[in-house]
Amino acid sequence: MKKTVLFILMTLGAYARVISGQVPLVQTDLSASKGGDLLVSSQMIQNILHYQTWGELFVYLQVHWFRLLFAVILIGVIVVFAIHYLIIGAKVFNENCPCVLVYPLFQRVVHWIAALSFVLIIPTGLIMEFGKYLGGGEFVRISRHIHAIGTVIFIIVFIPLFYIWVRAMLLSFRDDTRWIYMLGGYLNKKHVKVPAGKFTFGQKMWFWMAILGGFVMIVTGAAMYFQNFDIALLSKLHLDQVDLLRISAITHNFVGMAILALFITHLYMSLFAIKGSLQSMITGFKSVHELKYLHHSYYRKLLTKGFISEDYEEDK
């Protein structure tokens, strides 16, 4: 969290200084090595003048930061969760019924199509990011195509995904602030009643990152994919087409980092940290025991509506 804040501040600082023209990030040497001043045309073409805004920022970030930050996030998040797993361990709930159907069939199908698209998109994105260690060429090129195919799948599932969960994913101030305060109970070995509705704040973060971030990724990715397009709006914003591509690449990388971090988190939670979590997305059922602790508000709501009864034995 601290890292993220620091990182955002640094980036904003860099943006501001570059845009205001204070700092040339990359010194583009157009002159000859010796006595070369005469070789720079007195009137450079306009696109080159604009280069100092977005072109240099893109070069600076791509040369110094993107690959590094992706590596830090990829390794850092995995290490943090590995430590969490060793120290705190998994949460184990009594998976026997009584159970509640939390994810009806349609939701599960949508989830797994979205999951497929992410499994195609994220590793191939990383392959491109670290392409030089893989030698480039056909393998990375094919990954680029798979990245695009995964995106088409994600676009298909995007609206259903939004539609099925948007209501349950709306933030609830009371639950979510308390969830953040206790970090979802994940730093506690014992079962604690976590204030959360059908979805915890952690799940909500992931959902909104996938929806809002995903939307940004689609738009910026499409800009880079199609590359040649002409939008009248651009000239009004004093942007060249190539500047839009540069902004797209920068945004795509930063949002990609955030999605990567939460994607790993989601994998860790569903595959390791909460036993039976994966099963619940296959069968659609969650045990009342799990709901009572991880989704306590939802549990209480089901109680008052009479869908479940309180005389439930918690055999360990």
């Binding site: 080159i48 280069y51 072109g55 893109f58 491109m128 060429g137 990375v140 090129r141 590359q227 591509l245």
Partner: peptide, 21 residues
């Protein structure tokens, strides 16, 4: 060209619009 993946980053970095795809 056997290593290039056609990602387009060189185009974004180029001040002269030289890379072609």
């Amino acid at each position: 060209k056997n290593i290039c993946i056609g990602c387009g980053y060189c185009l974004y970095a180029c001040p002269f619009g030289a890379p072609q795809f």
